[in-house]
């Protein structure tokens, strides 16, 4: 008896047969080709991540007669910054028209300006204005904050000050890091805030603060804020890592904020009684000299701070700041 499920298949025409067969052959060929192309001894195919290096942010053609370090005392942050940079030869020495400028203040903490855990917003604003006057193409301000970045930039007053001065705040998010070769003794390849690879000039604006392990956080230590990754491990060799950073990143210009100085309980502070008035701005191109000068605010000597000596030995600068033809004045 024939089956009840009795729909009969159609016989293929020659044309249909050839089409079917060639389709099958094509699919097989694609499978085979893919297998050949992707055949590998590695379990995971990684795209080669580009490893970046820092570009040279320095300007070489500064006149040798100009001071390398300028120290301004006074009360008005804007005037002090202007006068100090003027003494170094003016902002035009450092920022050329159409330069992209990145400013790196210390915005590590969710703290008000008076507590001196972050750079004074007036100082940051003054530097932003200078860069805009030098006709920079863009002026970015960034940091890799330790507390919540939004809170840190807002409550430090820096976000508002930068926006008012005409700069742009760049918050570093999780994806904004690029693997960079710092070529240091312990800092080899490390994730670095991508903005440093997108600009022509870098201006470092640290604040002078106490720090229990490294004794002080000044301009070279402020460069910690360029790094992402597990930077809490750097404490295990803090002096070498700071020296490594100082060698790897050479800012175009450093403007140290010592208008307020956090003398105790650093680097977070938290109480007005931890803060002393410094009323000083130190600008220059020699980070070792600037840091050495700033030690006086914290009652420290070069011998107390190993990383300054290390950086000097590795050619970052000269700790004998008096030999650099310093310009010290009051505005």
């Amino acid at each position: 008896m024939p089956s009840k499920v009795n729909d009969k298949a159609r016989r293929l025409s020659r044309r249909e047969f050839i089409i079917k067969l060639s389709t099958a052959a094509a699919v097989s060929a694609v499978c085979g080709a893919a297998a050949l192309v992707f055949h590998s001894g590695e379990p995971v195919n990684r795209r080669n991540n580009k490893i970046y290096t820092f570009k040279n942010y320095r300007v070489s053609d500064t006149s040798p007669t100009l001071p390398k370090i300028a120290i301004a005392h006074g009360k008005d942050a804007d005037k002090m910054v202007r006068a100090a940079v003027e003494k170094l030869g003016g902002i035009g020495q450092f920022i050329k028209p159409a330069d992209k400028v990145l400013i790196k203040p210390n915005v590590g903490w969710d703290r008000q300006p008076e507590l001196a855990a972050n750079t004074n917003p007036d100082v940051v604003a003054a530097v932003v204005r200078l860069c805009i006057e030098a006709r920079a193409a863009s002026v970015w301000v960034t940091d890799v904050s330790i507390n919540d970045p939004y809170r840190s930039f807002a409550r430090s007053g820096i976000e508002a000050a930068v926006l008012k001065a005409g700069g742009i705040v760049k918050f570093t998010t999780g994806n904004d890091f690029l693997d960079t070769d710092l070529k240091g003794e312990i800092l080899k390849i490390w994730p670095v805030s991508a903005f440093f690879h997108q600009v022509d000039k870098v201006i470092n604006i640290p604040i002078a603060k106490h720090h229990s392990l490294s004794k002080c956080t000044l301009s070279m230590k402020n460069l910690y804020g360029t790094l992402g990754g597990q930077r809490n491990r750097l404490h295990q060799d803090i002096n070498v890592s700071i020296a490594d950073l100082a060698v790897a990143i050479r800012p175009t210009l450093t403007v140290m904020d010592a208008t307020r100085v956090l003398r105790t309980n650093g680097p977070t502070g938290g109480s007005i009684s931890d803060v002393a008035q410094g009323d000083t701005i130190i600008a220059g191109t020699d980070d070792v000299a600037i840091d050495t000068y700033a030690l006086s605010f914290l009652d420290l000597k070069v011998a107390d701070v190993p990383y300054i000596q290390m950086a000097e030995l590795r050619g970052v600068g000269i700790s004998d700041w008096k030999s650099l033809n310093p310009a010290e004045f009051t505005v």
Partner: peptide
Amino acid sequence: CLPWSMNVDCIVCEEVCPTSPK
């Protein structure tokens, strides 16, 4: 703890402690 039993410098905890005094 690294300084307590690994003979390694650290005190990140002290650095980030937000109170004053810490």
